[in-house]
């Protein structure tokens, strides 16, 4: 798989975790592809933390007004019929208050305790947490969707080395190699991409994987 295929492959698998009627917040990048792959009959409401409930999915709108309607990346966006515009305090009230069913976001590092780091590399880069810390503590389901490694180096670790975005918050990690669930005992590999062996997945993962006795293929 080349890079662009990998992103679509991960997004397609993530989409299967969403349920009809869910309110979902998508991070920037790969997560924005997820609505393109929703199973038939599954419709979700996108929440954009900058102020939209019922945001139009990427590519599903004609930007008309670049000055007044933007998405969480500041890019021109749209709203679906039945949607609403809200202010920041209300938006994060919905997020922290547990009214958002799922958030899907990427990570620099994620660990077997379900902690995630994705907002700062001390001394090098400090983009900031934006809304990520609130989403991680508030959303009922947290899915990290990312490439399994960065330049060949594991991103799924025993313990994050970068400052945390939030601790013990991730429920599921979905990569091009497999699907992992965060459990009390550690990371459980529950699905695998048949292009890889379990040994290959483990070799690309610093955390020790628990292999599910019911390990399934990621591909239907």
């Amino acid at each position: 798989m080349d890079k662009s295929e990998i992103k679509g492959f991960i997004a397609k698998r993530v989409a299967k975790e969403l349920h009809d009627g869910d309110v979902v917040n998508l991070g920037i990048g790969l997560p924005t592809l997820v609505p393109n792959y929703l199973p038939e009959g599954v419709h979700v409401t996108l929440q954009a933390e900058n102020g939209t409930v019922g945001a139009a999915a990427a590519g599903q709108y004609q930007p008309e007004d670049k000055f007044h309607i933007v998405n969480a990346g500041g890019q021109p966006s749209g709203i679906i019929p039945g949607g609403s515009f809200i202010d920041s305090a209300t938006s994060f009230g919905l997020i922290r208050g547990g009214h958002v069913a799922a958030t899907i976001l990427g990570g620099l590092e994620v660990d077997q305790e379900g902690s995630l780091s994705n907002w700062i590399i001390p001394g090098k880069m400090m983009p900031g947490m934006g809304g990520a810390m609130d989403l991680l503590v508030g959303a009922k389901l947290v899915i990290v969707a990312m490439e399994h490694t960065a330049k060949g180096n594991p991103k799924i670790l025993k313990k994050c080395t970068l400052p945390y975005t939030a601790v013990n918050c991730v429920h599921m990690i979905i990569t091009e190699m497999g699907v992992m669930k965060v459990t009390d005992k550690g990371l459980e590999l529950v699905e695998i991409n048949p292009e890889f062996t379990v040994e290959q997945v483990q070799a690309a993962t610093e955390a020790e994987l628990i292999i599910s006795p019911n390990l399934k293929s990621m591909i239907d």
């Binding site: 900058n50 933007v70 515009f85």
Partner: peptide
């Protein structure tokens, strides 16, 4: 009155 997503931090 705020159109679209312009209310954001302005309200608070």
């Amino acid at each position: 009155w705020y159109g679209g997503t312009t209310s954001n931090f302005n309200i608070v």
